[in-house]
Write a protein that binds this DNA or RNA. Structure first.
Lengths: 160, 160
DNA sequence: TATTGTTATACTCTATAACTATA
DNA sequence: TATAGTTATAGAGTATAACAATA
């Protein structure tokens, strides 16, 4: 609830120039995500990776040989948009695409040795980034946050 | 969602195709934000508004007559990117730009009667959207979520 | 006919340089 | 000189249509 003006001076809430948006939990969510995304991008930049290329590489490392279409589904990106991502990773020598032997339409994606090594180093930095960004919540506070976020996601999925 | 065959050996977590990313709280944050953003966009579409045009309109309604540059700062968008947003709102007759009398470089932005009425109706729908998306957390769970998100944002702001 | 990967395309969001008119 | 608004532009991220190869 937004509190009305208390007295002669403005309340802390009304003093915020964005007070009209601060009533919304979605606004807090957007701001938190923007902060995490900015720190994550900076974390990955030294490795020549973007959020999406890191995500793709991490999934490929965990599930070597999966099909491009399954990778696209997993990352929730449209198939056409995955092409450039894999071109980028393949161009950097981090993954290879191999035709499936039994279904020659499909491409199987595997990490190279370089891809495995880079993913290991990048993941260590991403974990440090996570510690930085989710510090000060406590172990149970962090778990509660993750559970609440999962609930929010599910609330959306149920609607459309 | 595709349900892989649950063999006796795979844990529930390993069965997730995106298990490699599920360890990260930032991944839960991104997914929750994507769900909220999708529902918010659908909520605003009938009003001819996007997330950013709604945010700008809501701030202008709350602080009529503020300068464009202050609005840009409030919304955390670069000044050039605000121009098209205000062109869109002004073109729809929802806001007007007036030259500041004492500093003729500055534009003061005010809502029109139509803008006020549309903002009122849109905000009612956005509140309903918020209830939908943050349902099932409890009043204190919702407050805890907002506090945790504010902490995450602050953790990022402290770093860069 | 349907599916996989691909190309082409387009729209949104975001970021920077440079111009203009004022100060 | 510096600032407010603007123009032009470019880079990500994301979405759809259509094509070639294969099923």
């Amino acid at each position: 609830m937004s509190a009305p003006a208390a007295s002669a001076s403005l309340s802390a809430d009304e003093a915020r120039p964005d007070a009209a948006l601060r009533e919304f939990a979605g606004y807090a969510l957007k701001r938190a995500w923007a902060a995490v995304q900015a720190d994550l991008s900076a974390t990955l930049r030294p490795f020549g990776l973007r959020t999406l290329t890191y995500s793709a590489l991490a999934v490929v490392v965990a599930r070597p040989g999966l099909r491009q279409s399954d990778l696209a589904d997993t990352l929730a990106v449209e198939r056409p948009n995955l092409v450039a991502v894999l071109d980028e990773l393949a161009g950097a020598g981090l993954v290879v695409r191999e035709r499936d032997a039994t279904d020659r339409r499909a491409q199987r994606v595997r990490p190279t040795g370089r891809g495995l090594a880079l993913a290991r180093r990048a993941t260590a930095e991403v974990r440090a980034h996570e510690v930085r960004m989710f510090d000060g919540l406590g172990a149970d506070g962090r778990a509660a946050l993750i559970a609440a976020l999962a609930r929010v996601e599910a609330n959306g999925a149920g609607r459309r």
